[in-house]
Nucleic acid binder design. Sequence first.
DNA 1: CTAGCTGATTTTATTAGCTG
DNA 2: CAGCTAATAAAATCAGCTAG
Length: 204
Amino acid sequence: MLKKEWDDGKVRKFEKENPELLGNNLVISFLKIPTNKNIYMDTISNPTPKNMKKLDVLFKKFYFRIRFISHISTTLKFNSINYDKRLRLIQSRVSSTLDATINSSEGEETFLDLLADEQAYNFFGEIVINDELVEHVTCPILYDALNTLTKKQIEIINLAYVNRLSDTEIGLRLNKTQQAISKTHKKALGNMLTYIENYKNKGG
DNA sequence: CTAGCTGATTTTATTAGCTG
DNA sequence: CAGCTAATAAAATCAGCTAG
């Protein structure tokens, strides 16, 4: 490659006449990149429209990149802060229920620990999805309590807690009114509670 | 952008009364 | 007693808005 024929005098003159431009942090960063510096020297030494255009395009690209990175960086920071905020908010709202600790024969655990994963793996490593709540329950008392319910009650409990349907949706599926579902649902929970309380009172 | 407020709408719970 | 309905009360959710 030919040695650059730069006019040092012209460059010095230009820099003397434009101290603000050359003092600009963005311009300083731009000129730190060798390719940019070369085009800059070319353009000052030989300011043809072609050279000027080249330098202009190069600087625009450089500027866009800086702005883009800055934008992405700000967005990421902003989003991560909000994500964290939201997480803490959700945590503060639900912590009193499933995260509450209870005493069991296996020491201290939370209500969340009593629930098994929705997805379990069988002997062959295949995912098995159960649609029966009993299959998800690992707490023996809860398991027994579930088994005291009527067929209808179990059906509604399954649809409500496994299929995540609302009372209205269950009613549509079973051809019953929402109120009927709500009543049976409540009755089922009440029956289970009675069973568990009786078990505890007997010294379980 | 989020939290918080408000009014509208939807969902859930309760009640009274009926049937098998 | 279990299970159902209609009417209605209560609670939860949503959409739109504002202040910080």
